[in-house]
Amino acid sequence: MTTAIALSAKPRNLSGPVGVAVLLATAFGLVPLVGSDYLFEAILTPFLALALAGLGLNLLTGYAGLLSLGSAAFMAVGAYAAFNLSLRVPGLPLPVSILGAGLVAAAAGLVAGLPALRLRGFYLAVSTLAAQFFVAWALNRIGWLSNDSPSGVINAPRLVVAGLSFEDARGRYLFSLTVVALLTVAAWRLVRSPTGRNLVAIRDQEIAARIVGVKVARTKLLAFALSSFVVGIAGVLWAFAYLRTVEPAGFNLDRSFQILFIVIIGGLGTLRGAFLGAGFIVVLPLALSRLGAVLPGDGFDSGTLEMVQRIVLGALIVAVLIREPAGLAALLDRAGRRLRLPA
């Protein structure tokens, strides 16, 4: 009874300060103590990298309403920029090279965003494909970018910050978690700032936004730059903390769609959405393969698994778009409200 009252007093307790504190304490304190290497390497680290990419894309697509299919390209730009910065500037601290990578990705995003001043919706999405294909082409053709390694494969530099090594599975998880936490706070401040309001204004009513004095062109380019900054750093985490060895093909159009699906399933225009969507995308194949194992017969082979996964994902996206365009975040909100309300 008292709990019910306490809960209803704070309607959105998971997004409230207490909820966030509990989440952070769990992620930083509890999980590193009890988690296994498998959990860190196969689930949590890719989850964090994808969630960050989703967060970045959500700033652009969810908040500013600008559709992009170039997320993987900006991840690649971030990863290869960080690789080159670490390689070519000896002694550059890792945080600085990551920040630099974010800035390079932001610049790439700015250029890729120029068509947004003329195009919107579907046409804009198609134009961002140009970024996708150009980056893939450049990484394959310009050997310098991958230090002339065959087929553009790069290896992650050592993850050491101020003498502290983050090389093992737990370290790479904690490293990713720190980066993601910092950028999530930044994104949270952004979306609540006047600039964040302008992003939504442009998305909802571009003409009215212009009339009330929002600098529409500048704000759109800003959205591309900020989004690409975050997505670029997600690319660094994907390459350095998760995979450790990447090739340009790892950042293909499939990856772009994956990030877009994360945002759609999780919930456009919410910060939580990126995490929910990424969690879903990472856990789905694992859950399906477990399911395959308990089903009669000899389980799913990898081809079947891949196919089932795609079908489930596709069906789910259609279902989300039709039934709950605001994604898992809205679903969760509603479930939460229903849990608190009864009697």
Partner: peptide, 21 residues
């Protein structure tokens, strides 16, 4: 009506000051 649907009433009114930011 050309309101910003994704914003609250308060935020919509605040957005009227975008030009003065």
């Amino acid at each position: 009506l050309a309101l910003f649907k994704g914003l609250s009433v308060f935020e919509n009114v605040l957005s009227g000051l975008a030009g003065a930011q």
